[in-house]
Structures are given as structure tokens and as C-alpha cells.
Amino acid sequence: MTDEVSGRSGSGISGARVAGGRSARSVPSPDASRRRMLAVTAAAGLGVLTGCGGTPSGGGSAPEAAPPDGSRSSPSTGAGTSGSSPSAGSGAPAPSGSATAHPTRPHKRSRPELPRGGRELFPHYRMVGFCGLPGAAALGRLGTGTPAQRAAEVEKVAHRYAAGREPLPVLELLATVANASAGPDGTYRSRTPAATIRRFHDVARDRRAMLLLNIQPGRAPVLDEVKALREWLVHPDVGIALDPEWEMGRGQVPGDTYGRTSGQELTRVARYLSGLVEAHDLPQKPLVFHQVAPSVVQKQSALRPQPGVALIKSADGIGSPGLKRGTWQRLVRDLPQGLHTGFKLFYEEDAQGSRLMTPKEVLALRPQPEYVMYE
């Protein structure tokens, strides 16, 4: 039995149909060009990123880099929080000869907060973001212009989705990119250079936005890819987005078939993030997983929310407003308790032969999406 997917059928992908029941093999896919671009970009070792600083890491690990604040000693001191300082609350004694009659009392260290305050994402905030890879326009909105330009743009878009909540802009950067070729380590994935991640984190902090690091793992173990990003995840304004459509099993190649994850695997990732939250006293950390069809997440009932982690299921899929509503209804049916919802829109592909859904239409979905992402 095949899943009816709203337009998400890449070149050569089997076992899926475009909306309307037509075979993916006989109908040009609206996002086939994106998949080909992804394969070409990754196969080139993320060469398009060299203009963003750093040396492409290809299939290997991203080089070690200091956090954007230049400090490793206290990564949870409120990066991304307005008015925070790594030295605040150090409690250093007054210099010798000071006129102070008594020793300075240590200041109570403020707890790290989300970029715009507080420690809980929902229901106070609605996250609205752009995703992509710099220099690769076919892979999303972040592929055009500069990070600062896109951050300014997403700020404006986010306010259109407020609807009684405070908008929280998001930059969802592709940090691990599925690759059409195996690469030197056979993982079919490339990692974005640390210098590029740092550049986006700097912009996110400057704009008081959230940075999500998107993982398309290829054949690499998902948890390994998450752990490789630990130096960023110890910050209070950095979360994870998983793209299990690109998670391949043995013998599978990205672009040839849909990948999949499971409720158990998502729980393992959430448990790891929960451990970081506890160890560094971080605010709630988002864990998004994009889902294009029911088959992409196996045994969803095994998904277990973890303390300090906001699990967000984002409905993926290209198509007209009607087709996207249909995909939404299939994917949000029988949601596990504690799971939040997200919705994905495509500026170009959704508009091909139809039109892009308006914020009013997106907010009319039930349950109301708490994360809206544009590619």
C-alpha cells in the first residue's frame, strides 16, 4: 500500500504517488529540481558554502569551533538572551583597597532564557521560520541573500502569524545534508562547516531568533549527527530539526526512495537533548521532525516526550491549499499526547499551478500549527 503524498515525489522515488493518484514515475515532480540540486550540492562537498567561511568538511566531522560568544567555560549563560553577559553574576570580590566595607555578595546567576525571554516555548510563542542552505536557492529561502537579510524578512513574516502569541523567528539551517553519493565514509551525507553555523548563530543571536539545525542523515546514525552538533546545542537559542525523509537504510540511496524514522528513535534524540537541558540548565529546546507521509514515522505511538524538550511534528508536502489540508488531516490524526504541530510551506513549488496558502488559512488549521516554516 502506498501513501498519497501531496506532491512530494522526487525523481526516481518509488512507493509514493503525487496527489491525485498519478504515478511518481510518469509525472514530473514539482520538487524534483530541489532533490537534484540537493544531490549536486552535497556531492560537491558543500562547495557553495566556501563563501560563508571555513573549509567544507565533506563527509567528515565539522571542525571544532568556539561558540559565537567566544567562550566555552559557561555555554549556558544566556546566549541569545537580551541583556545577558558571560561575566554577569561572577561574584568576584572587590579589588584590594576598595572602599567597600564588606565583601561583595555574589550575584545570583540568572538562568538562561529563550531568545525573547522565558523558558517555555508554548503556548507563549509561535515559531515562524525560513530553512535552507546558503548559496543553494533551490533548497530553501535561506539560500538567497545574506543571513541578516533573511532574518529581517522572517521577522516580518512571523508577525503575520502572531494571532495572540508572541512571534519567535527561526532560522532553520541545513547542518547535515543528504548526498546522492556515498562519500569517503559511505554515509551519503555531508556536514555544513562550523564557520557557516557560527555565522548563522551570530545573526540569530543578534536578531533574538531561534537557530534550528536541520539533519538529513543519509545513512549516518541520526543520534551521531545530533551529538556532532553538541557545541551548538548547549546554547539556549539552538534546537534540532530532523528530516527523516532523507534517513536511509542499508542499500538505500537518498533521492531514490523515502527514508523513515521511528517513535523509538525520536525518543532517543529527545532524551539526549533533555540531558543537555538538565546539565546546562537550559530553557525548553525544540525538536522538530518534518513528516511528508504517515510511512515516514514508524510506530509513532512509541514516541515519549522528554523533560525540557518541545516535540514538534511538522506536516510536510507540496501542493495546492486543498491538497495540503488533506495531508495535514492525515498526519495530525491520533497525535500522541504532548506532541506539538508544525506546518511547512514552499514559496515556489506550492504556487506552481496553484497558490501559496495565506497565514489566515494556515492558522485556520486544527490543531493550530505552533511552528510555521517556509522553504
Rank of each mutant, 00 (worst) to 15 (best):
W232S: 05
W232K: 02
W232C: 03
V234I: 13
V234Q: 03
V234S: 01
P236L: 04
A241L: 04
L242W: 06
D243N: 12
P244L: 04
P244T: 02
E245N: 11
E245K: 12
E245L: 15
E245S: 11
E245I: 12
W246K: 07
E247S: 14
E247M: 09
M248F: 11
M248E: 09
R250L: 15
G251F: 10
G251V: 10
Q252W: 07
Q252H: 08
P254E: 09
D256L: 11
T257V: 15
T257P: 01
Y258V: 05
G259W: 03
R260F: 07
R260W: 09
G263H: 02
E265P: 01
E265K: 13
L266E: 05
L266Q: 08
R268W: 08
R268Y: 07
V269E: 00
V269S: 02
V269W: 00
A270D: 05
R271L: 08
R271Y: 07
Y272M: 03
Y272T: 06
L273T: 00
G275C: 03
A279L: 10
H280F: 14
H280W: 12
L282F: 09
L282A: 01
L282E: 01
K285L: 13
P286D: 05
P286N: 10
L287Y: 05
V288L: 11
F289I: 10
F289A: 10
Q291R: 13
A293G: 07
S295V: 12
S295T: 13
S295H: 15
V297M: 12
K299W: 12
K299Y: 13
K299E: 15
Q300S: 13
